[in-house]
Design a binder for these strands. Sequence first.
DNA 1: GCAAACCAGTTTGTGTTACAAACCATTATT
DNA 2: AATAATGGTTTGTAACACAAACTGGTTTGC
Lengths: 93, 93
Amino acid sequence: MEIDKIIHEPARLRIMMILSGVDEVDFSFLLSTLEMTKGNLSSHMDRLEQAGYVEIFKNFNGKIPHTVYRLTKTGKTALSKYWKSIDEIRKSI
Amino acid sequence: MEIDKIIHEPARLRIMMILSGVDEVDFSFLLSTLEMTKGNLSSHMDRLEQAGYVEIFKNFNGKIPHTVYRLTKTGKTALSKYWKSIDEIRKSI
DNA sequence: GCAAACCAGTTTGTGTTACAAACCATTATT
DNA sequence: AATAATGGTTTGTAACACAAACTGGTTTGC
């Protein structure tokens, strides 16, 4: 089984794991939790969206923009497949 | 815990796992097992050596050059640390 | 005997990409 | 009115994974 490189990138793996637990999360939360730069986080979220693994919802909190991310079904599946592929490598220990 | 990027690269992770099982392996074996190009394999082995994770032994099989790789103690430690860091991320499931 | 093909790798060139810095638009704050 | 803060996006760049081309020597075919 091939390793999914979209998920394999450590930053994105952590993002996926967080999303898999909470069903909805916003930019600021990820930013402070993962301690990365905004630009970096932003582009990782783009890649995850383009892969179809997350949905991005943009709305306003009053006048302040607010972006919320949610794992898609495709994303959930991909994540569990990812762990299976990791297991496959690891089980040879 | 930080993810060790040297090991995290899928090709090198597989190499490390093979080495962790057999204590000594040659270039051709890795090449046919992993199905990668020679150039690619060669540079991954370089990186692993530079990280201090493998030792490279070059000798001759009769007249034909023969390269053998062996996991170092540092490499073994790094690999088991790597799996711990993966577990750390995964346990949040 | 000398090309051609082969073996065992290494070096080189390139497209991708992870990351941070700079930027943008708006809203507090002093 | 200037400055800082919020919530992001866009841009620039160094690193790097990969394949193609190369090297140095050996065996095979004619």
